[in-house]
Design a protein around this nucleic acid. Structure first.
Length: 838
RNA sequence: GCCCCUGUGGCGGAAUCGGUAGACGCAGCAGACUCAAAAUCUGCCAUCCGUCAGGAUGUGGGAGUUCGAGUCUCCCCGGGGGCACCA
């Protein structure tokens, strides 16, 4: 029998090995496909050590996986490593080592840590995206996507990160800066590899409805905005006295009568052509370039324009022409790179027209309100010839019809979404399996193309490009001298399909259909909100594309997304404004705080745990003081998983105290010196009621509520120690062990084993049967109100009819009310009696 | 500028359908045990008045719907996030 002191160190060490050897096989999943449950935590980058954010993420996932297994599901719960990427190269540059060695070492360390925390992962499914086995399959996918036309190469203005020395995808540019380096992004015209994600723009947009209610609304909204669908028309404006046209995309064809100028982007082909023999224009274009790279000023930048000698005909007003400007605010990569300006009904056009003295003609009368210009809302058309009197909505449709009828333009749908730039000028990534032959062009290379190990990383450009021999090959088609592509893939390419590879980590092709169709989609994916557009959009695209290519049956990657909140902690700054680590603070007798150098220290604010703010808590030190179970319990206790939460060592200690109480009570109920001597049995009903509530809160992943109900249940057991019979106590406590075991598995397994129950693993269909009859509360409390205010309560049997309720309410209220003032009495079965008085 | 989310005790947070606001925990206070402290246990703990009984107020503010509003509708204020020259 167990010792009387809860020795978490011994217990946790004993059970962690058992948990890490648990994995359900593919054949089990396939045979039980209708009861499978796939729990996925976004795979970590192996940066060195687990931080609290990881621990929170994985604890939530593990609790869910364990609960679902107990509830009878074949649970798939894999873990792996997003192990390609920049930090490994930067570390190698700093220390002189090799990215592979650094990465593999980190993986080993972090894997050990994961096991320490008792996370029950399917280790046989483990993958590392930098392994040859993984990227060999990825290269096959690349070539298939290429064959299908979903990957292509083009020359385009791309985002260049001058610090990381590589190009980036649009999704990786945040506020004009590189998402990792923070460097201000430059626009460069380069030939790069792209994924034709825009082919799926409409599917990605309309598919969002499949996720309603399961993905956070915020994520759906962000993706919708990112895809950015708009409806309008492309109109070809004829250049006056020429046969050439300038195509213009607009969503406001209703405002055409108010047009007073046309503006084209500085990067527009006409601008470039005009610049060729005009130094003024050349200068203007280079001025625009400067502003464009000038960070946030971009948004506030003054509208600048250069008036060309060109004009276009206004096709609606015979004889009228519009001047053509080159303008700094017109984007080359949206629409056609050219706009028409209607100053009266657009803020920017208004500012531009005012600056350059262009006519401002109001053609929309607001249905109500003032007449101040610019006015961008809806209204009734005026000064618009045969369109006068139409609403803006009617006018849009009518104008497009007209444009199509006279053959100068067409209805058009446009998207903000751009193709995904996937090539990176870096070493530590999946090599692009392509050979460039001067005679044959692009030729798929032999598979697999491995990264060379003998590289030199010195921070100056792409190590693959500089490698003396690697890129020099013979063309597979003509046998002549050719060059390998030296770019590697964006690491988001790896993380777009890893969840499929977990299902068949050793399979000879990327995806094994049989297990995919049984196991996919992932039932819940848990990770940070920062991937709302990046990873979650790419993964959706991959599933759609792989489905069309016959690789997968499922059409969505993740049924449910849980975006877990961040971990916050107190932070400190000294009088100089430097961040100070809490353990370097000394407190003087009068309560003032000082750092090592004697500067006064102040509590700053709650900040996201980060090394730079010196407010991290090392998970390892926590489990040494309080144990894994206490840490896991604390992490899911107070805050709902999707909300940010504040690290609170006091509350952690509270969790630890709770487990001590549990251990003590366990010994009192199951120990030889058990003091239980009562003969009541009310805990049996309490147990069923509690189990039902707890199961519901696990199902909805409201883990903070699970903990609250579990503690409530335990308090009831403690209260019954002297009054309840030993059978009743033991029944309740065994079920209590089951109820809390997803959260605190180590102590639970220890106690469970000591009760002599089998099977010893709680996770196989172990969730207790709940008796509906017992789980229903029959004795309920009815509120008695007068004019909606509570005046008393009484107990009654569930289902008591209204007449009886009113009867009881009258007795309770007694002389409190004057009968003659009663206007009416509202009684609601099982809830309330409200006496309405004058 | 546009879009979205959010506002409940000292703090984290509960509150299926509109039906007893504050479950569960943290912090705090008081008591028991102890020479003492820690640990543990017991009790209290929205605010105001009251010794108690009890009463009044109370879910950011204001209005509305309702017998009854934290929950529904409208307006305003605060906090957080996303997008941002997208034609």
């Amino acid at each position: 029998m167990s010792k009387s002191v809860y020795d978490f160190k011994v217990i946790e060490k004993k059970w962690s090995g058992v948990f890490s050897s648990y994995c359900i096989s593919n054949s089990q999943i396939i045979n039980n496909a209708e009861k499978k449950y796939y729990v996925l935590e976004m795979l970590p980058y192996p940066s060195g050590k687990l931080h609290m954010g990881h621990i929170r993420n994985y604890t939530i996932g593990d609790v869910l996986a364990r609960y679902k297994a107990m509830a009878g599901f074949s649970v798939i719960h894999p873990m792996g490593w997003d192990s390609f990427g920049m930090p490994a190269e930067n570390a190698a540059l700093k220390s002189g080592g090799h990215p592979r060695i650094w990465t593999e070492f980190n993986i080993e360390t972090m894997k050990e840590q994961l096991k320490t925390f008792g996370f029950m992962y399917d280790w046989p499914r483990e993958i590392s995206t930098c392994s040859r086995a993984y990227y060999a399959q990825e290269q096959k996918l690349f070539l298939d996507l290429l064959k299908r036309g979903l990957i292509y190469r083009k020359k385009a203005y791309v985002n260049w990160d001058p610090v990381d020395n590589t190009v980036l995808a649009n999704e990786q540019v945040i506020d004009g800066r590189g998402w990792r380096s923070g460097a201000i992004i430059e626009k460069k015209l380069l030939e790069q590899w792209f994924v034709r994600i825009t082919d799926y723009a409409e599917d990605l947009l309309s598919g969002l409805k499949d996720y309603e209610g399961n993905w956070p609304d915020k994520v759906l909204k962000m993706q919708e905005n990112w895809i950015g669908r708009s409806e309008g028309a492309t109109i070809n404006f004829k250049i006056t006295d020429s046969d050439d046209v300038i195509p213009i995309y607009t969503t406001r064809p209703d405002t055409l009568f108010g047009a007073s100028f046309v503006a084209i982007s500085p990067d527009h082909e006409i601008s470039l052509k005009l610049a060729k023999n005009n130094s003024e224009i050349t200068n203007f274009l280079s001025e625009c370039k400067k502003i464009a790279t000038n960070e946030e000023a971009l948004a506030k930048a003054e509208k600048e324009g250069f008036k060309t000698h060109l004009e276009v005909d206004h096709f609606l007003v015979p004889g009228k022409t519009l001047p053509v400007y080159i303008a700094n605010f017109v984007l080359i990569d949206y629409g056609t790179g050219a706009i028409f300006g209607c100053p009266a009904h657009d803020d920017r056009d208004f500012a531009f027209a005012t600056k350059y003295n262009l006519p401002i003609l109001q053609i929309i009368k607001p249905t109500e309100g003032g007449t101040e210009l610019p006015y961008a809302g809806d209204g009734i058309l005026v000064n618009s010839g045969f369109f006068d009197g139409l609403t803006t909505q009617e006018a849009k449709a009518a104008m497009i019809d007209h444009i199509e009828k006279i053959g100068i333009g067409t209805r058009q749908v446009n998207y903000k979404l751009r193709d995904w730039l996937i090539s990176r000028q870096r070493y530590w990534g999946c090599p692009i399996p392509i050979i460039h032959c001067p005679k044959c062009g692009m030729v798929p290379s032999e598979l697999t193309i491995f990264l060379p190990d003998d590289i030199e990383i010195d921070g100056s450009g792409n190590p693959l490009e500089k490698h003396p021999t690697w890129k020099h090959v013979k063309c597979l088609r003509c046998g002549g001298d050719a060059l390998r592509d030296t770019d590697t893939l964006d690491t988001f390419f790896e993380s777009s399909w890893y969840y499929l590879r977990y299902l068949c980590p050793d399979f000879d092709d990327p995806i094994e259909k049989e297990i995919e169709s049984a196991a996919m989609p992932v039932d819940i994916c848990i990770g940070g909100i920062e991937h709302a557009v990046l990873h979650l959009l790419y993964a959706r695209f991959f599933m759609l594309a792989l489905r069309d290519m016959g690789y997968v049956k499922a059409k969505i990657p993740f049924v449910k997304i849980l975006a877990q909140g961040m971990v916050y902690h107190k932070s400190y700054k000294n009088s100089e404004g430097e961040w100070i680590q809490p353990d370097e603070i000394e407190t003087s007798p009068d309560g003032k705080m000082f750092d090592k150098s004697g500067k006064e220290v102040f509590e700053f604010s709650m900040e996201k745990m980060s090394k730079s703010k010196k407010n991290t808590i090392n998970p390892q030190s926590i489990i040494e003081s309080y144990g894994v179970d206490a840490a896991r319990l604390f992490i899911v206790s107070d805050s709902p998983p999707e909300k940010d939460f504040d690290w609170n060592t006091d509350a952690l200690e509270g969790s630890w105290r709770f487990l001590n109480r549990v251990w003590k009570t366990f010994n009192e109920i199951f120990g030889e010196d058990s003091k239980a001597s009562g003969n009541e049995k009310s805990l049996i009903k309490t147990t069923h009621v509690a189990l039902k509530k707890i199961a519901n809160s696990y199902e909805t992943v409201s883990l903070n509520k699970s903990v609250a109900f579990i503690r409530e249940f335990f308090n009831a057991i403690e209260d019954g120690l002297t009054s309840e019979s030993i059978e009743s106590l033991r029944f309740a406590f065994k079920n209590f062990i089951k109820a809390i075991s997803p959260i605190t598995p180590h102590i639970c397994h220890e106690m469970w084993k000591a009760t002599g129950e089998t099977p010893s693993i709680l996770q196989e269909s172990a969730w207790p049967e709940i008796s509906e009859a017992l789980a229903t509360v029959n004795e309920i409390t009815i509120a008695v109100q007068v004019n909606g205010k509570l005046r008393g309560t009484f107990e009654t049997e569930k289902g008591t009819d209204e007449t009886a309720l009113i009867q009881r309410a009258r007795e309770i209220l007694g002389s409190y009310i004057d009968e003659s003032t009663i206007k009416k009495i509202v009684a609601v079965k099982d809830r309330v009696v409200n006496v309405v008085c004058q």
